[in-house]
C-alpha cells in the first residue's frame, strides 16, 4: 500500500520581484511512491530540490502542477496532518523557553488529551534521550540537542509517517548513531519514514529504499540491497550515477 503518491509534480518559483521575469524551476516531473512501513532516503546534491520536494509533500509549498496524495487524501485535510510528523532542517527554538514548554505547545497543537499530555511529553523526551532536560531553557541547548528536541516534537502524535529534513546535520558522530537507532526503533513499530540526507554512510545503514534527486528530477529509485549487490557501498553508487548523468548531458 502506498502512503505517499506524487504524480508529475513540478514546482516553479515565481520571481521574488514582480518586475523580474526569470522563473526558477525547483523540481520537474517528479513521480514517486512511498510504501507503508518503509524507510525511504532521498539523496541529492545541495540545491537538487530535496527540501522543496519534502515541503511540497507537507503542503508548505504548493506544486505548480501535478498532485500529491498522502493516505489517499490531500495534506490540506486536518485529519491527515494529525497522522504525520515533521522535523525541519536544523530546527531552532526560541531561546528563552523551556524544552517542556515548547513540547507542551506542540502537544496542544496536536490536540493531545490534557490528561495524557504530560506522560506523552516525557515519553518522547525519553525516546530522544533528553529526559531530565525538560526544564532547561533552549539557550542552554547545543545544536544537537535542539535537533533532538525537533525530533521529539515530531513524535508527539505517534505519527504514521515521519518526515525528516536532514535529520543528522548539526549532530556529532554519537548523535548520528542515536538518530539512527531512533529511526530503526520507530520503523520497527511500523512507522513510515521519509528523509533527506547527504550523510550516505548513515542512509545506507537505515534505509530500505533510496531515490536520487539530481538536477530537479528523480533519476533513480532502488532498494538498498540491490544497490549493495552491484556496488561497494552507497557512496560508490551515488557518485557513479551522478557522473553517468553528467556524461549523458
Amino acid at each position: 500500500m502506498n502512503v505517499i503518491e506524487a504524480k508529475n509534480v513540478t514546482k516553479i518559483y515565481k520571481p521574488l520581484d514582480f518586475w523580474k521575469k526569470e522563473k526558477i524551476v525547483a523540481i520537474r516531473n517528479i513521480n514517486l511512491e512511498i510504501k507503508k512501513g518503509e524507510v525511504f532516503g532521498l539523496l541529492g546534491l545541495n540545491g537538487a530540490g530535496k527540501t522543496t520536494l519534502m515541503k511540497i509533500f507537507l503542503g508548505l509549498l504548493k506544486p505548480t502542477s501535478g498532485t500529491v496524495r498522502i493516505f489517499n487524501d490531500t495534506i490540506e485535510n486536518r485529519k491527515i496532518r494529525e497522522r504525520i510528523g515533521y522535523m525541519s532542517e536544523l530546527p531552532y527554538f526560541p531561546k528563552y523557553l523551556k524544552a517542556y514548554e515548547i513540547l507542551d505547545y506542540f502537544a496542544d497543537l496536536f490536540n493531545i488529551d490534557p490528561k495524557i499530555k504530560k506522560d506523552k511529553i516525557n515519553e518522547v523526551l525519553e525516546i530522544v534521550r533528553l529526559s531530565g532536560r525538560q526544564n532547561f531553557k533552549i539557550k542552554a541547548f547545543s545544536k544537537g540537542m535542539q535537533g533532538r528536541l525537533g525530533l521529539a516534537q515530531a513524535l508527539l502524535n505517534d505519527p504514521e509517517i515521519l518526515f525528516l529534513d536532514e535529520p543528522m546535520s548539526g549532530f556529532d558522530p554519537l548523535g548520528y548513531k542515536e538518530t539512527r537507532d531512533i529511526i530503526i526503533e520507530l520503523n520497527k513499530k511500523g512507522k513510515t519514514i521519509f528523509f533527506n540526507s547527504h550523510i550516505l554512510s548513515e542512509v545506507e545503514k537505515v534505509c530500505d529504499r533510496v531515490g536520487v534527486l539530481h538536477r530537479k528530477e528523480i533519476i533513480d529509485v532502488q532498494p538498498i540491497d540491490q544497490i549493495l549487490k552491484k556496488h561497494k557501498n552507497l557512496e560508490d553508487y551515488f557518485i557513479n550515477i551522478i557522473n553517468d548523468e553528467k556524461v549523458k548531458k
Binding site: K55, L58, G59, L60, R78, K79, R81, E82, I84, Y86, M87, S88, P91, Y92, F93, P94, F106, L109, F110, N111, G150, Q153, A154
Partner: peptide, 12 residues
C-alpha cells in the same frame, strides 16, 4: 529560525 514550518504542518 523557521520554526513556523513545523507549526504549519501541525493540525492547526
Amino acid at each position: 529560525l523557521k520554526t513556523i514550518s513545523m507549526v504549519i504542518v501541525k493540525p492547526i
